[in-house]
Nucleic acid binder design. Structure first.
Lengths: 243, 243
DNA sequence: TTTACTTACGGTCAGGTTGACCATAAAGGA
DNA sequence: TCCTTTATGGTCAACCTGACCGTAAGTAAA
């Protein structure tokens, strides 16, 4: 009985999102061996017996990218019996957010097999493309990773305007311009947002409660008026659904 | 290798919510054997190797209650290595909604070990009580089920005003009064809602789009003016996060 | 029959929020 | 000096929200 019931493998798959040049992007790696050899897949690993899923996600993230303090949140558990031809693998998909510069440095450092794909989701479906290339078709993705990515983008969109996750995309939360925060929102929601109205919304949501405070410094741009820089204080807003 | 890696059990735990007498309630069963013998626990079962988590949830629900077409949604996957002293069990918590009358009939029919607890969550924490009894303390619950229930209530609250889940609490979606829908909202959110404003909100959200249509019939109450009865059409609203 | 009570339903009104848009400020470059 | 670019602030109408009132339609009591 012991063996007949304990026969699952548990895996973590990571959706590592970032915003590069105003576009929402996602990290994929090309599979080097069967099944789905040559297809693109989310980075993933098996969970060890003595660790939690969240710990396994952190560990995978640390091995892939030498980055700390990354936002990670459980997304959904995919458990179709035939999702992995090798055997019975239940996969817990997790959503992670890494600022682009840090991701870029990490990718440039090691000989990593990961590549950054622009991720768009609209009425015509999901589109993933590398720079100046045609979009991946759904068949180019391994396992059920197409569905996982779709759900991840939807979750991201649903949460961006009532949680703090937008700040996780910022290179430096202690010194950022409102423009950079706007860019994150536009990339995630995939639509233009009026800068003036956005500023007002951020003021009422974060200024008045002290979550964001202005800095002495200013951002010197190539052109145009310099932007004020702000700092995120540590008292974050809570979540509605998860822990 | 095969054995060292495939050593997980996967379980489903169900949060079966209902609204009874205007209160949000939850089904628990008293454990008859160790571990946590005598404590209250969510109904659960191990997932079979050849089924998905969602299918296991449906199967458990069908065995417990002879009810069909119940709303079920994945909540979160709990994976702490020490959450179950018997071994390595990863539990996928699912949120289910059953109308009270159907639940009551199902409970009265079979000799079921399940009982219906009023579930409240506020600033002072989680309170679960049977009729006219003191609230359960956190220590009366088995495993990490206290945390699971808290998360479930929060999820329910977060979703009730931008999804359709409130209708899943109704005894008969083809003939209901706006009052009964109001009661569901009040029970889930645990606060009073102005009936007039609620009516207006439902009108703009569901009437104009044709999701709800008025019926010829009226509800004859003991006292007061009879209420119009409405019918839910099949074109439901979508979800923001999950599938 | 009248009166009181209960519940359903519709409307008003002030305050807040949102989207569209304009005006001005502060920089650099032609 | 003028033009372009970007940041920042303000206006205004439309919409949404919560609080509240008035009325309609039924039952139960006087």
């Amino acid at each position: 009985m012991e063996n007949s019931r304990k026969a699952f493998s548990v895996a973590v798959d990571l959706l590592i999102f970032t915003v590069r040049d105003g576009r929402l992007c996602l990290l994929l790696s090309r599979r080097g061996k069967p099944p789905f050899e040559g297809r693109w897949a989310l980075p993933g690993r098996l969970v060890d017996l003595d660790e939690s899923v969240d710990r396994a996600a952190d560990r995978l993230l640390c091995e892939m990218l030498p980055v700390q303090g990354v936002f990670v949140e459980q997304l959904y558990t995919f458990s179709d019996p035939h999702r992995d031809p090798r055997g019975r693998v239940v996969s817990v998909a997790c959503l992670a957010i890494v600022p682009w510069q840090r991701l870029q440095q990490a990718l440039a450092g090691g000989e990593t097999p990961f590549e950054c794909f622009e991720a768009r989701l609209d009425a015509s479906g999901l589109a993933l493309c590398r720079e100046n290339e045609a979009a991946l078709s759904r068949a180019d993705l391994a396992f059920d990773h197409g569905s996982i990515i779709e759900m991840g983008i939807r979750r991201l969109r649903g949460k961006i305007d009532y949680t703090d996750i937008a700040f996780s995309f910022l290179e430096n939360p202690s010194s950022f311009s409102l423009r950079s925060l706007l860019t994150v929102h536009e990339a995630v929601l995939d639509r233009e947002i009026d800068f003036s109205n956005f500023r007002r919304a951020m003021r009422t949501r974060y200024f008045d409660s002290g979550h964001i405070v202005p800095t002495e410094k200013e951002l010197k741009p190539r052109r145009g008026r310099p932007a004020a820089l702000y700092r995120l204080t540590d008292n974050r807003k809570g979540d509605r659904n998860n822990a």
